[in-house]
Amino acid sequence: MEELKKEFLLFAFAFYEKFVSIYEKDTDTEAYLVLPLSYLEFAKKETFLFKLLFINDMDLHIMQSGDFYQEVGNQKKAEKFSQMIGVSLEQGKEIFLDLFLYTHGMAVLVATDKLFLDKDDQEKRIKCILFALKTQWETRHE
């Protein structure tokens, strides 16, 4: 039974990745916003799969910030994200993790019918937190 569950989770994650790909092609969204905004849209449109993948069976155990990058794909996503926003990989990894934590909180609220912001408001908030994270990092490392 555990093997069947593992196979279904792999299938569900592949479905999520396809969802992100379609979102990227079908929306006029700046590239660096695709992951957070598609994550929120997935939480809204595919609530049960979102809860399964990213709440109930999320295989993520962060004891320190570097642990986030042990999960398959996160390192490459952070590298690409860093390039998109024009920062070093070190800075980009910190910002990417913080942005994920912020967006995940929003997505959980969306999936549990507690948050009903439209796409424009979501985008505004993500841009705002991204600007704040970049500014904070730059201030700490001057």
Rank of each mutant, 00 (worst) to 15 (best):
E2W: 11
L4G: 05
K5H: 10
E7Y: 12
F8E: 08
L9C: 02
A14Q: 11
F15G: 01
F15K: 13
Y16C: 00
K18G: 11
I22C: 05
Y23C: 06
E24Q: 15
K25W: 09
K25I: 13
D26R: 14
T27F: 13
T27V: 09
D28Q: 14
D28G: 02
E30P: 10
E30N: 11
A31Q: 15
V34Y: 03
L35G: 07
P36T: 05
S38W: 09
Y39Q: 06
Y39E: 01
L40A: 02
E41M: 02
E41N: 08
E41G: 04
E41I: 04
A43G: 08
K44R: 11
E46Q: 10
T47Y: 02
T47H: 05
T47G: 04
T47C: 04
F48V: 10
L49K: 06
K51E: 08
F54A: 08
F54Q: 04
F54T: 07
I55P: 03
I55E: 07
N56F: 07
D57C: 10
M58N: 14
M58H: 12
D59E: 13
I62P: 02
I62N: 00
S65K: 05
S65W: 10
D67P: 03
D67K: 01
F68A: 03
E71F: 08
E71M: 13
V72H: 12
V72I: 13
V72F: 13
N74E: 06
Q75S: 11
Q75W: 13
Q75P: 07
Q75L: 15
K76A: 13
K76L: 14
E79I: 09
K80G: 06
K80V: 09
F81S: 01
S82E: 02
I85N: 06
S88C: 07
S88Y: 09
L89R: 07
L89H: 05
E90N: 11
E90S: 11
Q91M: 12
I95E: 06
F96W: 02
L97N: 01
F100M: 00
F100T: 00
L101A: 04
L101M: 00
Y102H: 01
Y102W: 05
T103R: 00
T103N: 04
G105M: 01
M106N: 13
A107D: 01
L109M: 11
V110L: 04
A111W: 03
A111V: 04
T112P: 02
K114Q: 15
F116S: 12
K119E: 15
D120A: 15
D121C: 14
E123T: 10
K124H: 08
I126M: 06
I126D: 00
C128I: 05
F131W: 01
A132P: 01
K134A: 01
K134Y: 03
K134F: 02
T135V: 13
T135Y: 10
E138S: 14
T139R: 09
H141R: 15
H141L: 14
E142G: 15
E142S: 15
